[in-house]
Write a protein that binds this DNA or RNA. Structure first.
Length: 301
RNA sequence: GGCCACGUGGCGGAGUGGUGACGCAGCGGUCUGCAAAACCGCGUACCCCGGUUCAAUUCCGGGCGUGGCCU
């Protein structure tokens, strides 16, 4: 790697081929690959999350892949801490993944907010259920005016705002003004977004899910049965559909269609984030993966 | 060949003589601790040709198409 660049970041929608690019780059530069994906951290879900294979992991050092159990509630906060630790060990880090928020933690930092006790989280959740979304939102807005612009129906954010308020006595907006330190602060970065044309991406998504099925995705899903639906890992695309097939509630063809559709919709959301948050990154068409490496290298010198 | 029914946006599916149900897909967008999540927004579609009417997707006739029944 050029002595001018401290770290390479490669973002891209799911199935854009970024893992392969990162691997080729790591081999070429002798770098370490650091995961920046919220789902590839889960140990028991390698196939469904399209995590690098054991063979691929042997070709270059990989960090933060499969280091968390599916029953653990992982989050950006933990990622930020894990990434900082990984950075300390990685000589030539190449951060790769598709989770926009995690990249934000790396490049912009997220506020350091005191942890919310599980008991409060649960109490707040029950409170919202008991009083209804509208009343809950009204109370939240009264106690934390900055939360008024949240939609009452936005379960996640209204819950989070109330939790923080109850746990810390200060509104979320207060904490958010105290900007956190970016994990990669002060480093020279080379940042890339892999963005294949939509039709190409859709075709890859389809092909990849079919390949997952052939590699044992169904068995993997079976092994994850009984996972609490509230856990982040329960949101792994395709998991619910395959488990429904296994339970006899859905046929495989339907499940496959639904899983592919959900994946396309996810890719679309990722691209929206990238377009608006990573406009200044180097955008690579990534239609033909073979010429991406030279393109990336040209930006590292 | 005869009889009957139907023909609405990419798909499914309501409905009406004059302000385009709705669902899905698709597209656009929001975004600081569940983010592969959560949430928001976006559609001049009524098979063709005549006729009736101030007005036809809606009524009438014909054509074409699809499905079913009959011989």
């Amino acid at each position: 790697m050029s002595n001018a660049i401290d770290a390479v970041l490669i973002a891209g929608p799911t199935a854009s081929g970024k893992s392969a690019v990162a691997l080729a780059l790591a081999e070429r530069l002798g770098g370490m690959i650091v995961n920046t994906d919220s789902m590839q951290v889960y140990r028991e879900a390698r196939i469904l999350t399209a995590r690098p294979s054991i063979e691929d992991e042997a070709r270059a050092p990989h960090m933060l892949y499969g280091h968390v159990g599916v029953r653990e509630p992982y989050s950006v906060g933990r990622y930020q801490a894990d990434a900082a630790k990984a950075l300390a060990k990685a000589k030539r880090p190449i951060f790769v993944g598709g989770t926009g928020l995690y990249f934000t933690a790396l490049t912009e930092g997220i506020a350091e907010i005191p942890p919310v006790p599980a008991s409060i989280r649960e109490a707040v959740r029950q409170k919202r259920e008991a009083m209804g979304a509208e009343a809950f939102h009204a109370e939240l807005a009264a106690r934390d005016p900055a939360s008024a612009n949240l939609r009452a129906g936005d379960t996640q954010r209204t819950l989070r705002a109330m939790e923080v308020l109850e746990a810390t006595g200060e509104p979320l907006s207060y904490w958010q003004t105290k900007a956190g330190k970016p994990v990669l602060e002060g480093l020279k970065l080379a940042r890339f977004v892999l963005a294949p044309p939509r039709p190409v991406l859709h075709a890859r998504i389809e092909g990849r899910f079919d390949a997952m099925l052939k590699s044992g995705a169904m068995e993997e899903a079976a092994g994850l049965s009984g996972l609490d639906p509230a856990l982040p890992a329960a949101k792994i695309l395709g998991l619910r559909e395959l488990q429904a097939v296994r339970a006899g509630a859905m046929d495989l063809a339907t499940a496959t269609t639904l899983a592919k559709t959900a994946t396309r919709q996810y890719a679309k959301r990722q691209l929206t984030w990238f377009r608006h948050r990573m406009g200044g990154w180097h955008w690579l068409e990534a239609q033909d993966l073979s010429n991406i490496i030279p393109e990336i290298l040209s930006h590292l010198s």
